[in-house]
């Protein structure tokens, strides 16, 4: 579990820092905490409850650091965690399909966020902004997903223990 916590905190700080040094309109918009949910689920050994608590906690921290809306990020993280559980129970998330799953989850995250902000809170966000937010987030997050996946695989193989312990 400590590796998951270290990875999550590192992702959080890296994501926060990169948003300031990378131009937003480029294709490098980091959503590393969402990527964490996708890559790290298998290291929870199918303990769905703990994974959901983890997702909610990450959502809450993300909310506190980058926003002030109380529930929006925790709800989004919770919904994403359900989708990740559903996908992971049907196919093995790994090197072969990460480049498809990451864009899929990011698209859902952005659409849900767009839907809530546009229709419920009435913050006007154009469709073009939505498309831009999706395609700008894909490249860097796929790269990060593969890196994180590789690091966790390497550590678990080398030290021969479950990450969850």
């Amino acid at each position: 579990m400590k590796y998951i916590i270290i990875a999550s905190l590192s992702s959080l700080i890296l994501q926060s820092y990169l948003t300031t040094i990378l131009k937003i309109d480029t294709i490098f918009y980091p959503l590393f905490l969402i990527v964490n949910l996708i890559v790290l689920y298998k290291y929870f050994n199918k303990d769905n409850l703990k994974f959901i608590i983890y997702a909610l906690t990450m959502g809450f921290i993300s909310e506190t650091i980058s926003s002030n809306t109380i529930f929006l990020q925790p709800i989004l993280f919770l919904l994403i965690s359900f989708i990740v559980i559903y996908i992971s129970n049907r196919i093995e998330v790994g090197n072969i399909n990460l480049f498809l799953i990451v864009p899929f989850i990011i698209t859902i995250y952005r659409i849900l966020s767009y839907f809530i902000l546009n229709n419920i809170v009435h913050i006007s966000i154009t469709n073009q902004l939505l498309y831009q937010s999706i395609y700008s987030s894909i490249v860097i997050n796929i790269l990060y997903a593969y890196t994180l996946n590789y690091i966790f695989k390497f550590i678990s193989n080398k030290y021969k223990f479950s990450m969850y312990d």
């Binding site: 994501q15 300031t20 913050i123």
Partner: peptide, 15 residues
């Protein structure tokens, strides 16, 4: 100094 940008407001806030 800027510390991060806000996701929820579609990048229209900074810390």
């Amino acid at each position: 100094q800027t510390l991060n940008r806000n996701l929820n407001y579609w990048n229209n806030e900074i810390s």
